[in-house]
Amino acid sequence: MISTDFEFLAGFLKTNSGLTLTPDKAYLIESRLQPIAAKHGKGDVAGLINALRTFPTQDLRRDVIEAMTTNETSFFRDTKPFDIFKSEVLGKLVTARAARKSLRIWCAAASSGQEPYSIAILLKDDPRLAGWKIDLVATDIDTSILAKATTGRYSKFEVQRGMPIQLLMKHFTKLNDDTWEVKPEIRSMVSFRQLNLLEDFSTIGTVDVVFCRNVLIYFDAATKGGVLGKISRRLSDDGYLFLGGAETVLGVSDAFEPSTGNRGLYVKPQRLAQAA
């Protein structure tokens, strides 16, 4: 790929999705964009980028962004954040929200749905939340991956990554030898919608917990700071933010502080001041 095409594509992705495309990721371009070039009749990746540069249709722009977005995920990915969510976060929120008995949770990079369904399963199985109103919003920039998430259907391989067999038997229905489906009572707890983290997301409303794991790593420092600032405005003052294990707010944003002893968990700084 010629350098001007690479620079154009990197600029396009940065502006439209916040993704930072560095030269070490150039190897992804051919394998991910060639099918899109073929679908839109542009021949090869060079032809596709030329079309993006001249008269891009809305469909073409969306397909390129979606193809370059990484959708790697699994049920209860990394385990530890879900332990912290169950013990530390829910423990505090069950007390703090005892009067209104409602919780709002936002998964900001839901991908194919494993994370929001994992959270829904934890909430469903938690006797402390019996009778509570749970609102679980799951968003992603990629509409095709959200379409998969909404079906709640996963292959035999997908359901075996991170999902304990007892929970699989309790919360899934086996449709055939290769397909398992999340049961309706879990699916109905999650509402999926498309959302670009670079755009305004005030329609999310105020939430108690945000899961925004393994997304910020694809953004540059300024974009990370902007997104964290906007998340902070959506989070209740005593709310919680989960980031991925390789992500941090330090040196990026002062909207959050790490929660001591809980790796990957962040809170608003005034809470630390109040607690002191």
Partner: peptide, 24 residues
């Protein structure tokens, strides 16, 4: 599971599944 298994793997499986089950 009733007979005393701790986890269950459906064949065919891959390294990621095996690692995940070991962790569980």
């Amino acid at each position: 599971m009733g007979a005393g298994a701790d986890e269950f793997i459906m064949k065919p499986f891959d390294e990621e599944i095996l690692s995940s089950k070991l962790e569980l």
